[in-house]
Design a binder for these strands. Structure first.
Length: 267
DNA sequence: CTGCGGTCCTGAAGGC
DNA sequence: TGCCTTCAGGACCGCA
């Protein structure tokens, strides 16, 4: 499930590959994967590639923007040769090279949107973790208003954008906080530590090129897997020993999501 | 406000 | 070997 580090990895590579290039043709193999009139993009140049939370925004030379959400199993693979696979849903053909949108589970989407529509979707998202708005004070204030488990707050895109199940689990281990702890019960020092840990695990995720853990389909724009999973402490580590205290990592369900934590040092 | 459960979709995993 | 069932999971929606 691509989260901020995976999407950012793709964004940086995509920027290198497609900025300045013109779209020559669009092939929509699965209509549900593409919303809007694909032919309106033909002839337009890519001027910029941005990211908002887990969403990629491709600016075009006209006023339209191409929004991409990879959801569970989406991939964006770029290359000169024919890279079409069984799971290819959309192909963007550039004057040089093609971009393949692969999506096994078909949850992801590409949308051709106006500036105002893009604005509306972006406004629904909370602050970017690496932005100046995402301060310790901000995190503490949203925690104070949250009577549910803190893990659900981290995954709520309206509170902070870009964190999903993997990095929520890892950030909470780092901060020594139980995923089930009610956010409003956290002491300010714990929230400050959590803030630091969020940035730390996301930074590591980007540094290692994203996570391609077991059951994950993530590959970068060049089709390469990430290595962040080699540095995880809890995600999919149930039954293994905690790297901090030696107790056994537990898996349970929270909000319908697999939740991994150390029952001893995360309280 | 909070917490459920259903929806989309498919491959993998488990049962027999 | 192979068929059948179950299930995860981001975001969203409806219901209690």
């Amino acid at each position: 499930m691509p989260e901020l580090p995976e999407v950012e990895t793709i964004r940086m590579q995509l920027e290198k590959q497609i900025v300045g290039r013109a779209i020559r043709d669009v092939v929509v193999l699965n209509p549900k994967s593409f919303q809007g009139d694909a032919m309106k993009m033909v002839g337009q140049k890519v001027t910029n590639v941005q990211r908002k939370g887990k969403m990629i925004i491709v600016d075009l030379s006209g006023t339209l923007k191409l929004l991409i959400h990879l959801k569970m199993s989406g991939q964006l693979v770029f290359g000169d040769s024919n890279l079409e696979s069984k799971h290819t849903r959309v192909i963007l053909k550039f004057d040089k090279g093609n971009l393949y949108f692969n999506d096994m589970r078909k949850f992801g989407w590409i949308k051709l949107a106006s500036e105002s529509e893009t604005e509306m979707l972006s406004e629904k998202l909370g602050p970017e973790p690496f932005s100046k708005e995402f301060t310790q004070e901000y995190l503490y204030s949203v925690c104070q208003k949250w009577g549910r488990p803190v893990k659900l707050l981290l995954m709520d895109q309206e509170k902070v954008s870009g964190i999903g199940n993997i990095y929520a689990n890892e950030a909470l281990w780092c901060a020594e906080i139980s995923p089930m702890k009610r956010a409003r019960d956290l002491e300010i020092e714990k929230v400050q530590k959590l803030h630091k840990c969020i940035l730390e695990v996301l930074e590591a995720g980007i540094k290692y090129g994203g996570s391609s853990a077991k059951d994950e389909t993530f590959v970068d724009v060049y089709g390469e897997k990430g290595h962040a999973q080699e540095h995880f402490n809890v995600y999919q580590k149930q039954g293994e020993v905690c790297n901090r205290c030696g107790k056994t990592i537990t898996k349970s369900m929270l909000g319908g999501r697999g939740t991994y934590f150390c029952p001893k040092c995360q309280e």
